[in-house]
Design a binder for these strands. Sequence first.
DNA 1: GCCAGTTTAAAACACTTGTTTCATAAATCA
DNA 2: TGATTTATGAAACAAGTGTTTTAAACTGGC
Lengths: 208, 208
Amino acid sequence: MEAAEELFCRRGFKDTSVREIAAAAGCNVAAINYYFGGKEKLYVAVWGRWLEQMREARIDAIRRVMSGDGQRSLETLLESYARTFVEPLAAEERLHQRQGCSRFVELMVREMVDPHLPTDMFVREMVSPVMVVLSEAVETLCPWLEPSVVPHVILSVVGQLVHAIAVRQMFGRCDDCDVPRLDLEQMVQHIVRFSAAGIRGYANGERK
Amino acid sequence: MEAAEELFCRRGFKDTSVREIAAAAGCNVAAINYYFGGKEKLYVAVWGRWLEQMREARIDAIRRVMSGDGQRSLETLLESYARTFVEPLAAEERLHQRQGCSRFVELMVREMVDPHLPTDMFVREMVSPVMVVLSEAVETLCPWLEPSVVPHVILSVVGQLVHAIAVRQMFGRCDDCDVPRLDLEQMVQHIVRFSAAGIRGYANGERK
DNA sequence: GCCAGTTTAAAACACTTGTTTCATAAATCA
DNA sequence: TGATTTATGAAACAAGTGTTTTAAACTGGC
């Protein structure tokens, strides 16, 4: 499963063959079908390993801010949530080598654009539950916000995070072209500041 | 090429076979290799058809705002740029059927996550040139912005747009789950307002 | 030691992929 | 018209895919 995860994250579902996985895991191709019942089932198993954990990590990050004794500002909420996104990548960067989930976030981005999971699984077990908790948090922290714009606001925040990761991938592939270097810490700081201001732009109905 | 474009946009590069394309185009598989020299070359040809056009559309949209006689506000810039993103999708929605480029934006999103174009082609011929012009425009419109944060700001705007399109795709696939309905017009309005406020948050150095 | 039950491994299977062959058909031009 | 080029189409090709078969090897209790 570790070998499968590694390869799926790096190359996606379609571009990873069971033979590669077997070779990386040092086992036979038949073993994969014996234990998992097929490539697709293995893929789901790899996901099952992290889906719950990542969902709970996100929800916990939100809850910790909302019910904690620290300051309950919009900024701390956004920062806490953003960190659950980039933390795995940051951990990898620190250790200078792969470990644990690390690149799983990248597989998430892939799955959004080119899904190979059973229908709705990702939305049902990850997107929706987190959306609910995050919506609540934003609504209580920004009571002036019309409830109808809350989903849009969340979409904006998540969009920035997802795209930042996707672009990191993209720029990582083309080495010599003149693309801005993207520091994870700077990225988080920016997205928090940008989004907080973006949300507060809704505080007063004015439109310049 | 129309058949290829249609299929590539809907299913991506890997999941589209030359036989499917041939069938859709009403020709033989050999013809594809005869005229294009292979599947990959055909893919590049399909891209070549739109890359320049879309790049110029984006650059024109920016230039029109910056050198036009109308008001030169941050909002008009953002709105104009955002429309070049969603316009093809909006056109499709209005006509209630596919036509022209329409879903090509979705292929762009795919290509970012799972590239099958020659190295750097997308970045070199699309991302970088547009980035330059957009940076200039943002810098003149927001002279108070530190030049170093301009790329981040642009990343935030593009991220919201790209993610909005990706999520539309994603939610379009799962029919019955309780996901917010995403109206393109509303989306643009939100992203413009959110981003303008986000950028203006940098106007004064204060951080609540 | 022997015999279930379980696990491994190589090979075979059925299928799809992109590409090529080659004979025929259509078009072009002297 | 007749020669030459260009285009088409069915079949073949080689390489790769996920999965299944089949037999051997291991395992642990008796």
